[in-house]
């Protein structure tokens, strides 16, 4: 089994920023954008998100798998939320509104009359959902493609995570290729003994139990290895004083600028929503004119 990280150096503008500054920006963006349902504000965030996304220089063929998943989730949400259930969209869209089919409709073959409660306001809400979720997705989808897995530990240590947690994170990233290799070896060994993972006979329970000969040896083997690693770390006095890290991170002027912008964005969002009471769900006049 081949496990490869999605990261590779692309020399994009995004990579010029310190990973800590990028996390602060991403989280500030998430908290800021989730305060709004006004499409004008959401469009602003959407543009920022995709400007950020394209600064990575990641190609479509690299990221398309993630986008397909997001597209599927978004489609399901909008179809169920807006078209089928119309459940008030989490209390955002006011009740009532302008019906898309005020007279209802008739199934041509059976002559069944139906009343469909879809409103223009809910359709506009669906557009807002696309802008909001699309923006959030662009910010977070690009992280694995542009952030070196070797710096996750030191990054989160720099963001205030305790040493032990950050080290655990670092260790986990380093274990992945080893465990993937162990899994491949176990799979090959079991197959050599006549194990058939692809056998389709049996119900769900049998299918799941059939996976046990793979999961059990890999898990138990890694637990035994873990004891040795623990002993080795204890013998080297792990945790008795603050750690030093192989990769050092240093803030530069562009990182301070990004952090400043992140704070401005978040504080601005809070002031807009709680100070000026703007940014809540809003439907433009031209859209409601379509209902007439």
């Amino acid at each position: 089994m081949l496990v490869t990280w999605r990261y590779r150096l692309r020399n994009g503008l995004m990579e010029k920023f310190d990973p800590r500054a990028r996390w602060i920006f991403s989280l500030a963006f998430l908290f800021a954008v989730t305060m709004f349902w006004d499409a004008r504000f959401l469009l602003f965030f959407f543009i920022i998100a995709f400007a950020w996304y394209f600064s990575s220089r990641a190609k479509w063929k690299e990221t398309r798998r993630g986008w397909y998943l997001i597209g599927f989730i978004l489609f399901m949400m909008i179809v169920i939320n807006t078209i089928i259930t119309g459940g008030g969209a989490g209390g955002v869209v006011p009740p009532g509104g302008h019906l898309v089919w005020p007279q209802g409709g008739t199934f041509p073959l059976f002559d069944w009359h139906f009343h469909f409660g879809l409103t223009w306001e809910r359709l506009w809400f669906a557009i807002c959902q696309v802008l909001r979720i699309g923006g959030i997705s662009a910010i977070f989808l690009i992280i694995p493609y542009t952030m070196d897995p070797r710096v996750y530990g030191v990054t989160f240590r720099g963001l205030g995570l305790p040493d032990r947690f950050a080290y655990s994170m670092e260790l986990a990233f380093r274990y992945v290729p080893t465990l993937a290799r162990d899994f491949g070896t176990t799979l090959d060994a079991q197959r050599a003994r006549g194990y058939e993972i692809e056998r389709v006979k049996g119900g769900i329970v049998k299918q799941i139990i059939r996976i046990a000969p793979l999961i059990v040896p890999v898990t138990m083997n890694s637990i035994l290895t873990g004891e040795d690693v623990t002993n080795a770390m204890d013998l080297r006095c792990f945790g008795t004083r603050p750690r030093t890290w192989l990769n050092k991170l240093t803030f530069h002027w562009q990182d301070y600028a990004l952090i400043g912008f992140s704070i401005f964005m978040l504080v601005g969002a809070v002031i807009a929503i709680y100070g000026f009471h703007i940014g809540n769900f809003w439907v433009p006049y031209f859209w409601l004119k379509l209902a007439e």
Partner: peptide, 22 residues
């Protein structure tokens, strides 16, 4: 959350990731 827990957290996370993908 001593050394043992640090190591097994890392192993658990890596194992969960690898087996999920596998």
């Amino acid at each position: 959350f001593g050394t043992r827990e640090v190591v097994y957290s890392a192993i658990g996370a890596a194992l969960y990731a690898v087996l999920s993908l596998a």
